[in-house]
C-alpha cells in the first residue's frame, strides 16, 4: 500500500487584477501520484514545472495566496490542514536545497536539537547531537559552528541529519544534488537510498534526470504543472524503447550522453 497518495492535485494562485477582478492561475493541474514505503520516486521537471509546489502542497506550506484542490492521503489518513500540521516534521520531512534554509544565527547543534524537539523526540542524552552528526561523517566540532561556515555538501549532510533525528517516514528531498560535486552527490544519494532501504518513502525533486535516475525506482515527469509521463526508472535505457510516453523518450534522447550527442556524430 502506498504511504502517500495524491489524487488530482491542483494548486492555484489567486491575485487581484485591478480593483475588483480576481485572477486564478493554476500552476499545478490534476497531478496524481503515489509513493510506497521503501521506494524512491523522482519528481522530474524543468524549472517552473511545479515540482516544489507539489512538495509544499503535501506539507501544507503553500503561500497564503495559493490554494490546493484535490485529495491527498498519508498512511490512509486524509491530508487536511490539521493533519498536515500534526504530521509535518514528525512523519513528513523536507530536505531543502540550500544552506539558506538554516538559520544564520543559530549553531548547527542548536538547530539539530530544535528539529528533534519539533518532531517530538527531544535530544536529552549528552552527545546525541554529536552522534547524529557523526552518522553523516560530520566532526563533533560542527555542532558548535554557524551555517555560514559550512560548505554546500556539509550543509546538505546537516539537513540529512536533521531528517534522521525527526524519524519521519516520508522524506521529500528538494534538488538534493544541486550545487554539489560528484563525491558529495554520491554521498547524499547513498543516504537517501538508505532511507528507502530502511522502509521510508522518499521523493526526490530534481531537474537533472540523469542524477535522479541514479537512485529512483520510478520517475514522474512534470511539464507545465501536469504529469507528462510516469515511467519505471529501469525503462530509461538504451534507445528508450521501453518508455511508454513519447515525452519521456524525447527527454531521454535529448540527454547529452544519449541521442543528442549521437545526432551530432551522424551530422
Amino acid at each position: 500500500m502506498s504511504l502517500l497518495e495524491i489524487e488530482r492535485l491542483t494548486v492555484s494562485f489567486h491575485r487581484r487584477a485591478g480593483l475588483l477582478r480576481r485572477v486564478n492561475v493554476d500552476c499545478v493541474r490534476d497531478i496524481s501520484l503515489a509513493v510506497a514505503r521503501g521506494e524512491v520516486l523522482a519528481l522530474f521537471g524543468a524549472s517552473g514545472a511545479g515540482k516544489s509546489l507539489v512538495a509544499h502542497a503535501v506539507m501544507g506550506l503553500l503561500p497564503a495566496n495559493a490554494t490546493a484542490g484535490g485529495a491527498m492521503r498519508f498512511d490512509g489518513r486524509l491530508l487536511d490542514p490539521p493533519a498536515q500540521a500534526a504530521l509535518r516534521g514528525s512523519r513528513i520531512a523536507l530536505i531543502p536545497q540550500s544552506i539558506g534554509h538554516l538559520d544564520p544565527l543559530a549553531t548547527v547543534g542548536q538547530q539539530l536539537r530544535w528539529a528533534a524537539r519539533r518532531a517530538g523526540h527531544p535530544m536529552t542524552v549528552p552527545g546525541a547531537v554529536e552522534g547524529a552528526l557523526s552518522r553523516f561523517d560530520l566532526a563533533p566540532a560542527v555542532a558548535a559552528t554557524f551555517p555560514h561556515a559550512l560548505s554546500g555538501g556539509m550543509a546538505r549532510r546537516v539537513m540529512l541529519a536533521m531528517t534522521t533525528v525527526s524519524g519521519a517516514d516520508l522524506v521529500i528531498a528538494d534538488e538534493p544534488s544541486n550545487g554539489l560535486d560528484a563525491e558529495n552527490t554520491a554521498r547524499v544519494f547513498r543516504c537517501l537510498k538508505s532511507f528507502a532501504e530502511a522502509g521510508k518513502a522518499v521523493i526526490v525533486i530534481s531537474h537533472d534526470l540523469s542524477a535522479a535516475l541514479e537512485i529512483a525506482d520510478r520517475v514522474v515527469l512534470l511539464r507545465d504543472g501536469q504529469v507528462a509521463a510516469q515511467e519505471r526508472a529501469n525503462a530509461f535505457a538504451g534507445d528508450g524503447e521501453a518508455l511508454c510516453a513519447a515525452y519521456a523518450r524525447a527527454i531521454w534522447n535529448a540527454l547529452p550522453q544519449n541521442g543528442f550527442s549521437r545526432g551530432h556524430h551522424e551530422a
Binding site: M59, L61, A85, R88, G89, S90, A93, L94, P96, S98, G100, H101, L102, D103, P104, L105, A106, W114, A115, R118, A119, M162, S166
Partner: peptide, 29 residues
C-alpha cells in the same frame, strides 16, 4: 518569508517557536 522559517515550519515548528527562536533573534540585530 525567509527560507529558514519555511524549513522551520516544515519541521513542524509552532508559530511561537518560530517567532522566539528565529524571528526575535534575527530581528534583534
Amino acid at each position: 518569508q525567509s527560507d529558514f522559517v519555511l524549513y522551520a515550519r516544515a519541521q513542524g515548528a509552532t508559530m511561537l517557536d518560530i517567532v522566539l527562536h528565529h524571528g526575535a533573534r534575527n530581528a534583534a540585530l
